[in-house]
Write a protein that binds this DNA or RNA. Structure first.
Lengths: 195, 195
DNA sequence: TGTACATCAGTGAACGCGCGTTCACTGATGTAC
DNA sequence: TGTACATCAGTGAACGCGCGTTCACTGATGTAC
């Protein structure tokens, strides 16, 4: 594992990390085999020891970006553990959008073309399952009729994802900070009241 | 304007149309100067008579895609003219998502990185102003308190845009048709109730 | 514990590709007199 | 109405670039005896 050694030791992860770095500015299109290899201080060919092809590398970077989102959201949700379920719903939404705004490239990468399936999103610990858990709490607290629980996660996710996308790439890119805050508040209020 | 003439006659539009064709499958990344020129039966250089550079061409294609979305939504809204305002809200949302599913490449192009500003979206006749008009009707009909009108358009837009994006590129790509219908219905219900 | 050898993880050179963009140019068009 | 000439909208060749991917290879590592 020494830096001097011929063998890298953890090239696979180094390449993913490099891909993450590349994508952090402009998103998934910046993730390329050669660029990642260069950043990792290695020949392009070496990358093919660890990834089948370019799409395979991108998929791995995407997975990592998705994890980073989950981690960020998770931290906020934990911090709001003491509050009421509806406050936690708010917290989760805010954390989600905040991540997108703080790390636009990673967010775009996580949801770019070819993103994972719903099954991937259902894996324990993703932002999606965290949202599901909070909705379950809402049901338990009697704040959400259980007959309305189905698909509620996807509906809420849609609202918050669309908000993030409009703010990043869409027509809301150049919005003033207080207007940004206002849209976020309004959208989360809609979700809360509408579920 | 004859096809035989040396001069094309309307090369600018032909290039935009070619760009639209290119983007229709995979989206904005497929729009390139050389490919569009090729499709228009013209030398790459010729494109530079009509567009400053590649980004300029892409921007023009994006604008056209945005218009196509507006046209599609507008048609549906007109068809629902007879209904109640809340039905029209539903119609607008459905038309919007339907367009995204029918023309994924154009939809991605319309909202891809570098998309227009909110001011562009406020131009008369866009999908956004159509939505605004319906919300105004809701207020007039007493179904939406006027103090809740501000930002309601953006919140509704977020929900429907996020839904479209999750269905196109995100984790909901492989959803079964009836599940797709269910998410759409659930999300629109959330918007309707939550505004 | 030492050594022979298989395997593993890299190198370096090369391929063909499509791209954006620029150059000097020429044929087509339109306009002034 | 005819013609000279300016301008316009293309051509064709070329540039340099970064890309994905493959090839034959070699140095490093680990394992069986």
């Amino acid at each position: 594992m020494s830096k001097e050694s011929y063998h890298h030791g953890d090239l696979r992860n180094a390449l993913i990390e490099a891909g993450l770095q590349l994508s952090s500015k402009s998103g998934p299109t910046a993730v390329r085999v050669r660029a990642a290899a260069r950043a990792a201080g290695v020949t392009p060919t070496a990358a093919y020891r660890h990834f089948h092809d370019a799409a395979d590398l991108l998929a791995a970077v995407r997975r990592r970006a998705f994890e980073l989102l989950a981690t960020a959201v998770s931290a906020e949700v934990d911090a709001s553990r003491v509050g009421a379920p509806s406050d936690r719903l708010e917290a989760i939404g805010r954390a989600y959008v905040a991540f997108a705004l703080a790390e636009p490239g990673w967010y775009r990468t996580a949801f770019g073309p070819g993103a994972g399936s719903l099954e991937d999103a259902r894996v324990q610990g993703t932002a999606f399952t965290l949202l599901g858990a909070v909705l379950d709490e809402l049901v338990a607290a009697g704040e959400l009729p259980s007959k309305r629980r189905p698909m509620a996660d996807l509906a809420a996710w849609s609202a918050v994802h669309g908000l993030a996308m409009l703010l990043l790439d869409g027509p809301l890119t150049a919005l003033a900070p207080d207007a940004v805050e206002a849209v976020i508040a309004r959208t989360l209020a809609m979700v809360r009241a509408g579920l």
